[in-house]
């Protein structure tokens, strides 16, 4: 996790956007390793595939269509103000953690609502050894259905936005070539 912290700082400082997108991929991969350590193997799979893989590809695609370099500058006062806001918010949040249950505590309230039932019964009720899969696909099936709707909407949105942009560019190019012909004649 210290590595992740360093990575995030590097992301904040480096201005070459190609390096930033690569670093964010490594950041996700480190996160996946952390999830394995914290017993969340399914989450680690997803993060490694989706966070480190697809996100990086999307990021690189965007860079190919836009620019690689971030502009230098940005006012000193702006970054100072931002830092102050961030420090204040962080201090409040750290104050909030003092009421949190200890890391790894098994009597924390989060472990005592529906979770014992999932652990005890899901094997018989759903028949899968992996509790995460049973909860995802069976007990919270509607949630997963909603998730697929979200992805569908996002995909439709991306296609609508990018498809329109491409059509307009083609129109402009057609106009330019048309103009060129006129001036030539």
């Amino acid at each position: 996790m210290l590595i992740m912290g360093l990575m995030a700082l590097a992301i904040a400082r480096i201005r070459d956007l190609f390096a930033v997108s690569m670093l964010s991929g490594i950041f996700s991969l480190t996160g996946a390793a952390a999830y394995v350590v914290l017993d969340a193997v399914d989450v680690a799979f997803t993060e490694a595939a989706v966070g480190a893989g697809i996100s990086t590809v999307l990021m690189l695609g965007t860079l190919a269509l836009t620019t690689r370099k971030e502009k230098l500058g940005g006012g000193r006062t702006k970054s100072t103000a931002a830092f102050l806001i961030v420090a204040a918010a962080g201090a409040v949040l750290i104050y909030g953690t003092f009421d949190m249950p200890r890391y790894g505590d098994r009597i924390a309230p989060i472990h005592h609502h529906v979770v014992p039932r999932y652990i005890e019964k899901s094997g018989e009720e759903v028949g899968l050894p992996n509790i995460v899969t049973s909860v995802l696909a069976s007990y919270r099936g509607y949630d997963t259905l909603g998730e697929t709707f979200v992805i569908f909407t996002a995909a439709t949105g991306v296609l609508a936005i990018l498809g329109r942009a491409r059509r307009r560019r083609e129109d402009e190019e057609a106009d330019e070539t048309g103009g060129g012909k006129e001036s030539a004649s």
Binding site: D39, A40, V41, I110, I119, N130, I131
Partner: peptide, 11 residues
């Protein structure tokens, strides 16, 4: 979600 001494939630 982590519990000390616990393993990944696979029965």
């Amino acid at each position: 979600a982590k519990i000390t001494g616990g393993t990944a939630p696979i029965l």
